[in-house]
Amino acid sequence: MTFHIGTLFIPKRICRASPGRLRWYARLPHKPRRTMMLPSLPILHLAGTRVRIDDISLRRSPRVNALRAGSSASDIQAFIAAANTAGVRYVEAPLPDQGLDAVPFGTGRPTGTQVAISVWDLDGGRRALALRPDCLVLTLVASEAGNLALTGRPRVDTIEQLQQVAALAAASGVSIMAAVHAAFGCPLDASVDTEVAIDLADLFAAGGATGIVLCDDTAMADPLSIERACDGLRDRWQALDVAVELSNARGMALANALAAMTTGIAHFRVSLTPGDTHTSAMALLAMLHGMECETGIDMDRLHACAALLEFPIGDRSPSKPPSQTSSGIARV
């Protein structure tokens, strides 16, 4: 430990000595040191931030897709109950196969847990509303080529159908969120940038959406592009909940999360399943808790919840990952 006097750094052991020894040390030849005052890092100002964490394991996990693995209603409810116990208050799932259409998500689940279903078209929206979810996630791809490869329809048709779904949801009292995939770039269309994704999100923001999600399915985002894209979004959509869904395919998820937080976005969607290319809930929570951020999630209970996803719910055997298009965007 040292004390700084002008340009002279004096060791603490010398300062404890007699004044004579201190004068002797000061007479020794010393190279002057230049001091520098650095500005506070943005991370310091993020300490104590309240961060919302949503779970998308049932929709996104490459090792388990409970709704397409022949699982029963009790299996699904067991996962939702475990997530609720861990402090997760939002679980998103894909639209189930026809065999599970009779299982309402609005019943038999813990109080305080919202269940959302992601839909791509009008038919899926009608089926999803019949399950009585808390929220519908209207999903589309920012690029024309990516949307065509994933849905088989032009982007304008997808937008038109999702707008009809939004009207049906409003009539049923179900909230909607808009999730724009490949929001930070698409390998099938280099001309698409985040401004296109933001313009698409504006359409649904004006149509009654309560939240906007920007998804980095293609792993093309980096901290600089995240900060540039997300800067000002909280002011642009003041009345909406803005979330980011990040990919960890290139190991940038945590850095990208920090970049998003510096712009005021503190809402992330993650997967509990180890090995998922999306942001790992465990890694993100470890970082957030180390930064003294508040998440309301119990890590130990979350590990127990993740254990349910070690193998597909229902048959307990390894499953195939979700199919993907050439764009790298996973089918949901």
Rank of each mutant, 00 (worst) to 15 (best):
D300Q: 11
P19F: 06
A182E: 00
N256S: 15
A171V: 09
S74I: 05
I212H: 03
L44Q: 13
A286Y: 07
P39F: 07
R34C: 09
G314I: 00
P104V: 05
W24V: 12
R155I: 03
V64A: 06
I313V: 14
N248A: 10
L200F: 11
P62M: 12
G125I: 10
A221H: 01
D231W: 04
L46P: 01
A47V: 10
P321D: 05
T35R: 15
L308D: 12
R52F: 14
C215V: 15
C293Y: 00
S143D: 09
I176R: 01
D217T: 04
R109V: 01
A205Y: 13
G108V: 02
P19A: 12
H289M: 07
R301L: 07
P312E: 09
V115F: 11
T113P: 03
A205I: 03
V137M: 12
F204M: 01
D157Q: 15
I10S: 00
A167W: 04
L8P: 00
S327K: 06
L200C: 05
G99L: 03
M252G: 05
R34T: 06
V137A: 04
G6I: 09
E160C: 09
R269D: 09
A255C: 03
A66S: 01
A286T: 14
A149F: 04
N147R: 04
L41D: 08
A221C: 08
S271L: 10
A330R: 15
H267I: 05
G296M: 09
R331S: 08
L138F: 07
S175T: 13
A283Q: 11
I5N: 12
L58M: 14
G290S: 03
D157G: 14
Q161C: 02
A257L: 14
G328K: 10
S191P: 10
A102C: 08
R16M: 10
A17E: 12
A330Y: 06
S280G: 10
A205L: 12
I53L: 11
V141S: 04
V64T: 11
L129N: 09
P318A: 09
M220D: 12
A93M: 13
R63M: 12
P32G: 11
E227R: 15
V244N: 02
N65H: 08
I198G: 03
T139N: 07
N248C: 09
T151Q: 08
I297Q: 01
C15Y: 01
T151A: 14
F268K: 03
I297G: 00
D193S: 12
L162V: 08
F3Q: 11
A281H: 00
A179W: 04
A83W: 02
R250E: 04
C215Y: 02
R34P: 00
L67S: 09
T325R: 07
A266C: 13
V156S: 15
L38S: 13
F311V: 05
V156R: 15
I56C: 15
R59N: 14
V165W: 01
L258W: 05
A82M: 10
D216A: 10
E310F: 01
L246H: 06
L28Q: 12
H289S: 11
P322Q: 14
G314T: 07
T210N: 11
M287E: 01
C305R: 02
D75V: 02
H4W: 08
M299V: 15
Q238W: 03
H278E: 00
A83G: 12
A130N: 13
